[in-house]
Write a protein that binds this DNA or RNA. Sequence first.
DNA 1: CGCGCCGTTGATATTATTCAAGACCAGTGG
DNA 2: CCACTGGTCTTGAATAATATCAACGGCGCG
Lengths: 263, 263
Amino acid sequence: MPNRSAQQRAFAVPEQHRLPARPTLRAVARDARACPPSLSLSPSFPLRCNTETASQLEVLPTRRVRLRKGEVLVRNGDAFTGLLAIRCGSCKAVVAAAGGGQQVAAYYLAGDILGTEAIFAGFHGSTITALEDSECCELPLDRIEALAREDATFQRSLSTMLSREIGRGRKVMLMLGSMRAEQRLAAYLLDLAERYRLLGYSPRAFVLRMTREEIGSYLGLSQETVSRLFSCFHAEGLVQVQGREVTLLDASALQRRVDEPLH
Amino acid sequence: MPNRSAQQRAFAVPEQHRLPARPTLRAVARDARACPPSLSLSPSFPLRCNTETASQLEVLPTRRVRLRKGEVLVRNGDAFTGLLAIRCGSCKAVVAAAGGGQQVAAYYLAGDILGTEAIFAGFHGSTITALEDSECCELPLDRIEALAREDATFQRSLSTMLSREIGRGRKVMLMLGSMRAEQRLAAYLLDLAERYRLLGYSPRAFVLRMTREEIGSYLGLSQETVSRLFSCFHAEGLVQVQGREVTLLDASALQRRVDEPLH
DNA sequence: CGCGCCGTTGATATTATTCAAGACCAGTGG
DNA sequence: CCACTGGTCTTGAATAATATCAACGGCGCG
């Protein structure tokens, strides 16, 4: 049935490339796409817990949100009401930069927990937008913490999740602070590949969910620079690029690009 | 008694400028310098807890470390054995950058908790060095978490601490990703001022604990650029600079610098 | 007193941005 | 079906920002 308006268009759980991946992983990914009711949010980082906690978690989510591409999940300044788990899809977090500008501070894939940065302040410091049709659920912090008090494994899992977020920030700082443009883009592509791999998708071929401008904002570059770099990488045979469809032809060469000294 | 060797030199708890500050805050700062046995680590961010937890915390620290300027607290790759609390002094965290380079990823003052990023991986991803004579204590994560299971206030306090660290990372990303050199340095100085203020020190005059090179590394700039910017700010009457002694003459003008559009 | 690290400043080189123009593409309405 | 439209992407040329190279002054420490 063609000619549906955008508003009425059916909600579609996004699909990645169906390129070959190890069967077991692919099966997990299929489950992830199906968004089962449990909180085994993602194969890449399940919130580990004992069976009792798991059953409690299943009945926990108070808010279950389906977002269409471009829809806003959290607005800058919103009160913090709980952590947000992405069940499937992907989001970007945009912060207000100096002089009225904007910067993409993070992007999240299925299994990631959003809003961690807002626990401290009590309100969100960024606007979180869906980059494709996505599904999230809210986990009230009080309830989560109550469960953590009963289940040490789950408690550790939460600390680990927050720690990972801190480490990810470090990695981005490293990128922004000490890499040149081409190294940043190479690192970005490899990071994406790794995260897709953990989700059971092909790490070799994937679809960019961000525009050149958004990628540039995330990497501290202009959209033109990003575009040019894609062209360069393409010309050098490192990647195949067609719009937002990317295939990494030589991941190790990309890695070498990242590792090479400043000149 | 002059002419002591570095090894034997008396351990000196570092002192900040003794410039006017509100008496109450100054009193707190004095206490912080005295390093009392309790875990009210710092006026800027006490780990809140009930009295029972507090008494448990007092007997907790397994490792109490006194560091002299330049000494290493944690080396990149060290196994994670517990969170580290700075009682007094300051430290920098250095990560290995691409191409054999190094980057200062964070600096910590009294009251800050170090090593949070290592919970996830199980080992530290940075080398942490004292920027001045400092004192730290290690808090084994198991024990901390056991206490958190008994005391919800303390539990929340831990989450908040980790959340704050994530937010701080975001702030640095913003600096590195969307500010020009002079905006970065202005933001850095204002951040220092605010943190010193929270510790009860003068936010107007303080001593930089990092070299120009370290500041540059943290801000993603070369040492020469940092030096030039200090000269500029000085010439414009924004700050008074003499080596590492800095006085902010016009903080609001500095803030305006940070906020101004890219042009 | 001298050595070495730190900081400053100038000249030059490089990198990435900005400005500008046009191509491409998907969605929309005629 | 086709042309239109707005957003996205690409590419070139000029420009601005910052790094790099180099030389020197100063200060602290041994």
